[in-house]
Design a protein around this nucleic acid. Sequence first.
DNA 1: GTCTATAGTAGGATAGAC
DNA 2: GTCTATCCTACTATAGAC
Lengths: 188, 188
Amino acid sequence: MSSTVTRSRIVEVADRLFYQHGYLHTSFADIAAAVGLSRGNFYYHFKSKDAILDAVLESRVDATRRTLRDWETSNDSPADRIMRFVEIVVTNGADIRRHGCPVGTLTTELAKLDHALHDRARELFTLFRTWLRDQFVLLGHAGQADELAMHVLTFSQGVAVLSNAFRDEAYVSREVDRMRDWLSTYTR
Amino acid sequence: MSSTVTRSRIVEVADRLFYQHGYLHTSFADIAAAVGLSRGNFYYHFKSKDAILDAVLESRVDATRRTLRDWETSNDSPADRIMRFVEIVVTNGADIRRHGCPVGTLTTELAKLDHALHDRARELFTLFRTWLRDQFVLLGHAGQADELAMHVLTFSQGVAVLSNAFRDEAYVSREVDRMRDWLSTYTR
DNA sequence: GTCTATAGTAGGATAGAC
DNA sequence: GTCTATCCTACTATAGAC
């Protein structure tokens, strides 16, 4: 198989396993087995575990940029776009209940490990933060746009942690409703 | 040294290391070195790493119960008590920026590991949840007390994750102010 | 580009002397 | 109750054949 195809399959599988079981708890053998490669062959594609993490982060950054661009080019109003973000906790509800937020849990784990790539993981948060800020600017709240963006992120991370802890779907819906009400006070 | 003293020192040190570096990333050797014990002697006190985690969780549950009881017996109003909880993210701000919320990060990690003690870790959340619910009942909101308690927990977990990711003290203060305003609408 | 074989290390856990 | 010595396993990583 071509090198690039195998490489992208490794990244895809590693991304999923890092999310489901954590970075530290995912071994080379786990990834190799899931891809269907021998451990030895692995190092032809990636020379270290950190190199895989780096590639996974790059892949996630690209995917996030694409998603945000899609939302941007839709005909939704800024408020609707923000709600699209808010509703991720419902859209991806099952995954989040089981494994938490992909961005939040990875960033938290890398912070504990004092990992050099913590900064790159945080970049994912920054992408959403900047995008949300832009929406609040469009809503006419330029002065406090960043603060409001951070408040929306706070919501999403809080809900992710607690829905993961309690596995309670109804709780998530209630918090989303609460967020919708809150957002409506900033919409005209 | 007496067995019980050594044991409690192990629990104390393990608690701190699990918080700072995560459960998986903390080895027996790390704990032994920090306590000043040989690895071998370790197994006289705890027969497995899970046994230490279990003892750490028990210790945290006890400490949490004590804290909540203290807050309960103070002369604060229910609203002031809730604000005491809210302000933990400021009171313990430095630790949370560096290592996140002790309860949230441990629960998240144990969920990823599919660890049997995940339920015991969640119990810590439940202690706060129940206590907060009681305060909202006292405020005259029995009908939605649990929902409001979960909303306060959502706040604290969201702030913990993002303050850990961005290390931004001012952001935390703004979110606490926002929470104070929100709470005032439930106070008479 | 993929494999097997293997080196080297760290971590969890045990045995037995003191 | 504490130590040293040791076993076993899992993991990261490399070497070299095909």
